[in-house]
């Protein structure tokens, strides 16, 4: 089954990181799938990729540009990102727009945990990617990938709205190259990631004291 990762009115060559997407497609096609499952999967991924709802989450400067792409000139509603949800339960991806500090890190992780699968993380701006100008600070997490599995990185300080739209298109392409039925191929599985994280920071797996009852 040939999967189409094209974005309407964008040239394939205009995207960077095509090798990554091709690798994902190769993995997708390696084992094959039966026609019905494949077709259904195709439709689901098409639907999902065109209806990614962001969580309204911003910590600093990038948040203003995030608002700007929602506004009239850039209008990300055109791509189906329209319905920004304030509740993490209903959002599809979290745009980490801004610096993540030590105090914020557990909160962000919790927000991510509260989101419903399948969920994605977009690291927006220098701060979320690597700490940016605040790398030397005593209170800044140098890169949100230390606490969350990141799908797309959008560099810039802050990234221009065009760059953000490009990054979101890359996310769409990634979603299109995924397999929904039979496991989400995020490159690294959720469990694997959890395990790595647990090793990396030596946290306990005991979740008894974890209160899932929401934001309050």
């Amino acid at each position: 089954m040939k999967r189409n990762v094209n974005i309407k009115s964008m040239k394939y060559e205009d995207f960077n990181d095509n090798e990554y997407i091709e690798q994902m497609l190769k993995e997708l096609n390696e084992n094959g799938a039966n026609v019905i499952v494949g077709c259904l999967d195709n439709v689901i991924e098409w639907g999902r990729s065109n209806s990614l709802w962001p969580l309204t989450f911003a910590t600093s400067c990038c948040g203003i540009e995030f608002m700007a792409i929602g506004a009239a000139r850039y209008d990300f509603a055109r791509f189906g990102f329209e319905v920004a949800r304030a509740s993490p339960r209903q959002a599809d991806f979290i745009m980490v727009a801004g610096t993540i500090t030590y105090k914020m890190a557990p909160v962000l992780k919790r927000l991510y945990d509260q989101m419903a699968d399948p969920k994605y993380v977009v690291a927006t701006g220098g701060c979320a990617i690597s700490g940016g100008p605040f790398q030397k600070s005593y209170h800044v997490v140098c890169g949100v990938d230390k606490i969350l599995p990141v799908d797309v990185y959008i560099p810039g300080c802050p990234p221009r709205p065009e760059a953000m739209l490009y990054g979101l298109m890359q996310l769409q392409r990634k979603v299109k190259a995924q397999r929904f039925l039979g496991g989400i191929n995020k490159g690294i599985s959720e469990k694997e990631y959890e395990r790595l994280m647990a090793e990396g920071v030596g946290r306990s797996e005991g979740k008894d004291d974890y209160d899932e009852s929401g934001l309050a």
Partner: peptide, 23 residues
């Protein structure tokens, strides 16, 4: 709001809602 609204899927974004439903 001086915007265009959904545009990408189907003519004038008319199948946008189906995407949402699948999602």
């Amino acid at each position: 709001q001086c915007r265009l609204g959904p545009q990408r899927v189907g003519p004038w974004g008319s199948v946008q809602v189906f995407c949402d439903v699948f999602k």
